[in-house]
Nucleic acid binder design. Structure first.
Lengths: 353, 353
DNA sequence: TTGAAAGCGGTACCAC
DNA sequence: GTGGTACCGCTTTCAA
């Protein structure tokens, strides 16, 4: 049955299109035509059947690298994520990525997620991406992307570089998730409900600085419109001890309104405040972000800033356009909007605290 | 300056090793040796410098596909995740993936995450993976992997197929995350604290069935050891209405101990119970899973099952061994352990509710 | 209707 | 110490 020695556990070489051709008794060219649907009017139905059967029999799977080497373009779309931020992802972003990959597939691309190491320079990171010769790179969550990186990628054949995140990079298409606006609308809401001594949680977690910084800045900007309003940064690590310290800072600073970075930090802080007997929203109002189910489960119900991410298929369409349309100039194509969902923790809910 | 017409936005072709060779006035062979560190004793220092300079000047980045085409093996490790489960990831798993990718890089591999579409057959999914000719495929979270898929991957040159998740697939290396054990230890704890009418939350969320099923089964198995103990499945969607219905089912069934699938569902259910005036743990004891910070923030503090995932670098080592050592036979190499962290929600905390 | 052959970018053997 | 060259798997033009 088998012409190789009996100690061959698996065929050492995968079946190639030549093997299929030999098996079907045709040329490699014919195999290529048939298997790529270019056979109309070129190859007889009988031959096509033979080829398909042979491919089936051999379990033939085309070699994407060889194909893209020849064709000069790959179908790979790299979704870059800073490795140190992955754990901080909420379900919001995870869901986005999942549906984005599916949407990409509908355009014929293969989207893969690449965790970029934080201990590498942006240029080295870009080089690692470039080696894969992706059709496009989409950086998310502030994966390191400098102007030089973009240039490197373009030089090495990447058709499109997009960035989905805090700041648009020169040369790249941008989908701006405006972190400042998130901080601004949160602060504005607190100010509108009469709070003047604001606190803004700054997570003490690796990799979150590119989000927390702008959010703090946005809050400060919003406060400038209100004479006498102050903004105090509140460092907070995801531990109860840290929350207790933040609670103390709130009391000592007579802070009466806090933007807690996101819903999870808000929960942490709410617990610390409540354990210390602080009334929410009576003494301190609290605003989270992301508008998770969590926000509605807390007591008092948590006011939260909801950011609308662009629809995954819209981003996929943008990627496709950036790849295929050379005249599509880089720039900010989309900007997310943030809006407050008022609830009890700022005294806006149906019933008071 | 530029010899191409002024409408050339980017150089149409990336620099190749030939270009580097031409630029440096040497042959492609020399370039290859120098750039791969095989130059010792073959190429003069002066020539090496010239080559490196040329590569630098041109912004040369090797073409991974061409390299792996020639060498017959790629450095790609595919981490497959079922797309419909991605949003259900907790920070635990996300953190694991991030550190795993980093660990892989230390072994010289490039790990990328590939979201497998749920609407494809396992075989089609495997084919999509195989096209990329990865060195290894690691399926996680029950990404579809049948015996046939494994065979297909092996036939097409994948050196190792590993599965990290509920059930080991024949032919693949397995890292078993024992979902049954999670359900079993949770139920055992409830039973040990005197509960007999158990409820087990079964999330009504796409893609979680491969986890919830075994967890329920594990709970049932544990209950069998206690005469008179019953187990009632409690369907639960991530909405407050659904939680209210589950609460009602708990009351009507006189359930006195609930394993709530994970900490988040536990929080949802706890809130519904508390809003209805049910005392925890007095009337109903509650156990979550994942042991998130969340569990400690709830009142009463939530008893939770902690699963220890294998260390990322251990898994990376396993992958490397499976790739490089052909005599390393597939089988279960690692099995996670689950253990209960007792807290107030089952009456085990420092202080009673 | 089909096949021969060139070539995508790199590697590595072998000759000089 | 360096260069020529065959070849990895696939696509596609051109000729038969």
């Amino acid at each position: 049955m088998n012409d190789s020695p009996r100690n061959a556990p698996t065929p050492p070489t995968p079946p190639t299109s030549s093997a299929v051709a030999r098996h079907a008794g045709v040329s490699r060219a014919t195999v290529s035509y048939v298997l790529n649907g270019q056979a109309a009017g070129r190859v007889s139905a009988a031959t096509q059947a033979k080829v398909k059967q042979a491919a089936q029999d051999l379990g033939y799977v085309p070699h994407a690298a060889a194909r893209s080497l020849r064709s000069g373009s790959s179908a790979l779309v790299l979704i870059a994520v800073p490795a140190d931020k992955v754990p901080a992802f909420g379900p919001l972003f995870a869901g986005f990525v999942a549906r984005f990959q599916t949407a990409l597939e509908e355009y014929g691309y293969t989207g893969v997620l690449h965790g970029a190491r934080a201990d590498r320079s942006p240029l080295d990171t870009a080089r690692a991406w470039a080696e894969l010769r992706p059709a496009a790179v989409l950086t998310t969550f502030g994966a390191p992307l400098t102007e030089e990186s973009v240039a490197l990628l373009h030089r090495s054949g990447t058709r499109a570089v997009l960035s989905l995140g805090p700041a648009p990079t020169p040369g790249a298409h941008g989908i701006t998730i405006d972190q400042e606006e998130i901080g601004a609308v949160a602060a504005a809401h607190l100010l509108a409900t009469g709070r003047r001594a604001l606190g803004v949680v700054v997570p003490d977690e690796r990799g979150l600085d590119s989000f927390s910084g702008p959010r703090l800045a946005g809050a400060r900007a919003a406060a400038r419109a209100f004479p006498g309003a102050t903004v105090t940064p509140l460092p907070l690590a995801p531990t109860e001890e840290s929350a207790a310290r933040a609670r103390q800072a709130i009391s000592e600073g007579h802070v009466d309104g806090v933007f807690a970075y996101n819903d999870e930090y808000a929960m942490l802080l709410m617990r610390a405040l409540q354990d210390a007997g602080v009334d929410i929203p009576g003494e301190v109002a609290l605003v989270g972000a992301d508008d998770l189910l969590l926000a509605r489960l807390l007591r008092p119900r948590l006011t939260s800033v909801r950011t609308e991410l662009p629809a995954p298929h819209e981003v996929a369409a943008l990627v496709d356009r950036a790849i295929t349309d050379p005249s599509f100039a880089p720039g900010v194509s989309y900007r997310t909007k943030a809006q407050v969902e008022p609830r009890d923790s700022t005294g806006d809910g149906a019933g008071p605290a």
